[in-house]
Amino acid sequence: MTVLAVKNLSVAFHTESGRLEALKDVSFKVPANRSVGVVGESGCGKSTLINAILGLLADNGEISAGEIVFEGDKDLTRLDAAAMRNLRGQRIATVFQDPMGALNPVLSVGRQMRDIQYRSGLSKRDKDARSVAMLRKVRIPDPESRLAQFPHEFSGGMKQRIAIAMALMMEPALLIADEPTTALDATLEVATIELLKDLQREIGCSVLFISHHLGVIAELCDEMIVMYAGEVVESGTTREIFHDARHPYTQKLLACDPARLSRRVPRLPTIAGTLPDLRRRPSGCVFQPRCDRADAQCLDVPPGASIGGSHIARCWHADIPLGVSA
């Protein structure tokens, strides 16, 4: 079963300097009980994608094409504001980079966790018992006594774990995690990833995990999509993409990751050029102006070349594996 299916989604913003196509023809699926990673650099449209799913696009933005189907029957692009509000926080939960976005600084953690359960019909005592159980799951030591404490009394790592506990409290079908470990230290980052992995298995939800960090995606996700300038350039299982990336952008992005270098190199690899102006998209392949494999063919929109299985790369030259120069 598919929890979330995004089909041919395009989102445009109307700005003072013209129409900006932030997402173009984005399609992917999040199957039940699976983690899907979205990887891309700044300006790739990650935030727009999340906001489109949550129905929180800015006033000047509009979904110009496509649909977002949730749990098989609800098209989120057509739901009204009230129906969207009912889904958010209950069926679709979110965790962001800054946990303070989810925590109210003037209310105790216990009070906030109780407030989330307003629909459960449980007594105050039962709600608190569930909060304690949830805090224990996210490895907050001594959870009973910490319910009365306020967010500022917790460390950064603990705050993020509490935000995760609150997001998973209502056992949502889908957790959208937007760079939840980026602000954490390395040791806390791996601990948080492992925690998310365990919780996902235990609660049985799907995770849409957005990150610019390839290593984090590799550790956590079963499948992934690579985004560039508002388009999905490659998608497949995490294993397929990390071992056999076919889109030149994915290949370069992987090569840039210093974690892949096991020794000191004289020059670190980079991606030459800059992101195109989304008001004037390049014709044909969106990566063609920065691609060293680009030829005349690339001025036409590339097809989604199937590499095998679910692995698809949107490139005219997707037959060249990593490490083979053009």
């Binding site: 791996v190 601990a191 990833i193 960090h213 390839l214 290593g215 590799a218 550790e219 974690a259 892949r260």
Partner: peptide
Amino acid sequence: ANPEPDPDKVHERITLPA
């Protein structure tokens, strides 16, 4: 503690408690 960009890499990770 570095997340490895390779899903198949076997981790001999030292997890820091607390």
